[in-house]
Amino acid sequence: MCLAIPSKIIELDDIMATVEVGGARKSISLQLMPEDVGMGDYVLVHAGYAIQKVDEEAALEAHRLLREIALQMEAEGALHDPFDDEGYVIPPSMPPI
């Protein structure tokens, strides 16, 4: 429920941004960001809002962990691709991230 995923900013438009994670893109709000962000920065995204900047190393480490979980779920026979069509790792019956 409270899972947040580090995502890379690839486009900026006022208080909105486009982020990329797992090869897919998503439009998110920067309204709650306590600091300025730029292109290429990683932000922690939860349910359509960036909530904090994270450094690249921490972001990539979190992605590795999520990928491991995704593979594990595939091995467990998860019914659909753990990278859903929005590119977010969503276990089968988990709420939106």
Partner: peptide, 17 residues
């Protein structure tokens, strides 16, 4: 709207909008 402190600020921000 459900959720702990991770989620409630997003709902607050949406209401402000």
């Amino acid at each position: 709207a459900t959720g702990f402190e991770t989620t409630s600020p997003l709902v607050a921000a949406t209401l402000m909008q």
